[in-house]
């Protein structure tokens, strides 16, 4: 199946930067109510304004391979980057995941995130892939960082009730 690329399985089995670490500026807990997937995610941000940098993202994810792999890719792609770059990466991931298969993703922007492009053909799985990213932007906002340059998305919060 093209959905489960080897890269996705590797990330889901051995997620990068997993675990909850100190110090952190904000911690959030997001749930996908459709399936019960959960992620607790912390961000540690240093600096302010345009100089704000994501020093660390740590997380404990319980869920399907897609949601865990996506959290792993997230940590890879945003740790050590400015908040502005991280939000651009989020926007690119979201554009690809919600494109219904029309956007394949740019590896120079989203890195291993391109391996998740197959998710966009399965609308019921998009929320799985966005869970960690939505938690991340929520955590950034709660840490006091201005994330208004990117529209935040509450997809995982509004889930299909069941």
């Amino acid at each position: 199946m093209d959905l489960y690329q080897e890269l996705i399985l590797e990330h889901s089995k051995r997620p990068h930067h997993a675990g909850l670490r100190e110090p952190f500026d904000a911690e959030v807990h997001h749930i996908n109510p459709t399936c019960g997937d959960e992620v607790t995610l912390r961000v540690d941000v240093t600096g302010a304004g345009d100089d704000a940098v994501v020093r660390d993202v740590s997380y404990a994810a319980q869920g399907c391979s897609i949601s865990v792999a996506s959290a792993s890719v997230l940590a890879d792609e945003v740790i050590g980057h400015t908040v502005g770059e991280a939000l651009e990466t989020f926007a690119a991931m979201r554009e690809m995941l919600t494109s219904r298969g029309t956007v394949t993703g740019d590896e120079t922007v989203i890195g291993d995130g391109v391996a998740l492009s197959g998710v966009s053909k399965y609308p019921a799985r998009v929320k799985c892939a966005l869970l960690g990213w939505t938690a991340f932007t929520d955590a950034l906002a709660r840490s006091g960082v201005d994330i208004s340059t990117t529209t935040t998305d509450s997809t995982t919060r509004q889930g299909v009730s069941s």
């Binding site: 199946m1 959905l3 489960y4 459709t34 399936c35 019960g36 997937d37 869920g63 399907c64 391979s65 897609i66 399965y122 799985r125 799985c128 069941s162």
Partner: peptide, 29 residues
């Protein structure tokens, strides 16, 4: 070792429609 969503995806790929998740019975799970 495999999440139900992933199991369901493999089944769906073969045309087999099942339900995955907590089936509106979260405390039971």
């Amino acid at each position: 070792g495999v999440h139900a969503h992933d199991v369901g995806q493999v089944l769906d790929d073969a045309g087999v429609a099942v339900r995955v998740g907590h089936h509106c019975a979260w405390p039971l799970h």
